[in-house]
C-alpha cells in the first residue's frame, strides 16, 4: 500500500499491516495511545473484521481493508456526516480506477456503495472521545476487489470485470478522501457534500423501507435533512427523520432489471 505524494504532502500517514484483527479496532487503539492522525491503517486480511452492530465483515486477502483515523476534525454532532464524505470519496476512487462503473455505481443511505444494486463496499465509522470533548473518528472502509460473500446481493470488482488490485484502489481512495474532507470542511460545507451525495443516491423520491429496532417502516425517501438524516414521508402524511436503520429498496429503486 502506498499514499500518493499529494496525500503525503497533505500530512496523511500510512501504517500498512499484513494481518490485523480489525483495522478499525487497531486505529482506535492508536488513538487511545495518543495518535492524532490523519493516519491510514490498512491490512491484507482481517481476522475479526466487523460491520454495523457486531456483524461480521469477511476479510479474505485480495480485498481492501483500510481505516482512516482523524482526531478533532469536527464537533461530535457533525461527525456522522463523515458517512457521506466517505461514501463520496469511495465512489470517486472506484470510478477513477474503474471508469466503466460510472453510471452503474450508486450510493445507498447512508454510506453503502452499490454496483447495479449489489453491495461492493461497506463503511463503518466509529467515534471515541480521547481527551475530554475531543472526538477521535475512525472510518473503516472495506471494498470487495476480488471476493464477495455468496448470495448476499453482493458483488466484487473482479465479478464486474474490473481487475483492480487493492493497492491501486487504496492510493486513489486516500486522495479522494483528502479532497472530499477538504470540501466538507469539518461540517462547515456539509451542504455541498449533501447535494453531491443526493445526486448519486439511489431511491430518492421512491418508496423504501427502513428496518430498525422499532420494526419496519415504509415511506417515500424525500431527501436528507441538513444533518444527513433520512427524511421519510409516510402514507398518513407524517414525516419521520431516520438517524439509524437499514434501508431496503425495491428492485426498481436500485435500477435492477429482472
Amino acid at each position: 500500500m502506498r499514499l500518493s505524494p499529494s496525500a503525503e504532502l497533505g500530512g496523511v500517514r500510512l501504517r500498512a499491516l499484513d494481518t490485523v484483527g480489525s483495522t478499525n479496532a487497531e486505529a482506535l487503539a492508536c488513538a487511545r495511545a495518543g495518535e492524532r492522525g490523519p493516519l491510514w491503517i490498512t491490512a491484507q486480511t482481517q481476522t475479526s473484521g466487523r460491520g454495523r452492530r457486531g456483524r461480521v465483515w469477511t476479510s479474505e486477502p485480495g480485498n481492501l481493508y483500510a481505516s482512516l483515523l482523524q482526531v478533532g476534525v469536527a464537533p461530535p454532532g457533525a461527525a456522522p456526516q463523515l458517512s457521506f464524505v466517505c461514501a463520496l470519496a469511495l465512489y470517486d476512487a472506484l470510478t477513477e480506477v474503474a471508469p466503466a462503473l460510472r453510471g452503474r455505481a450508486a450510493l445507498k443511505w447512508p454510506n453503502d456503495l452499490l454496483v447495479d444494486g449489489r453491495k461492493i463496499a461497506g463503511i463503518l465509522i466509529e467515534g471515541e472521545f480521547v481527551a475530554g470533548d475531543v472526538l477521535a473518528v475512525v472510518a473503516g472502509i472495506g471494498v470487495n476487489c476480488a471476493h464477495h460473500p455468496d448470495g448476499a446481493n453482493a458483488t466484487a470488482l473482479s465479478a464486474e470485470g474490473e481487475a483492480v488490485p487493492p493497492e491501486r484502489l487504496f492510493t486513489a481512495l486516500a486522495d479522494a478522501m483528502l479532497s472530499r474532507l477538504r470540501q466538507w470542511d469539518g461540517g462547515r460545507n456539509f451542504a455541498t457534500t449533501r447535494a453531491d451525495w443526493l445526486a448519486l443516491a439511489k431511491g430518492v423520491g421512491m418508496v423504501i423501507k427502513v428496518r430498525s429496532n422499532d420494526g419496519e417502516i415504509e415511506g417515500v425517501f424525500e431527501t436528507l435533512d441538513a444533518s444527513g438524516q433520512l427524511v421519510l414521508k409516510q402514507s398518513d402524511g407524517a414525516t419521520r427523520l431516520i438517524a439509524a436503520g437499514d434501508v431496503v429498496m425495491p428492485d426498481a429503486a436500485l435500477g435492477v432489471t429482472a
Partner: peptide
C-alpha cells in the same frame, strides 16, 4: 448511532451507574 457512525459515549468520571435513562435501540 447516527448515519452508521457508531459513537462510544464514555463515562465522564469514575463512579457507579445509578440510573439508566434510555432504552436499547431507541432514538
Amino acid at each position: 448511532e447516527a448515519m452508521k457512525t457508531m459513537n462510544h459515549i464514555p463515562a465522564p468520571r469514575s463512579g457507579t451507574v445509578t440510573q439508566v435513562l434510555i432504552e436499547d435501540g431507541h432514538p
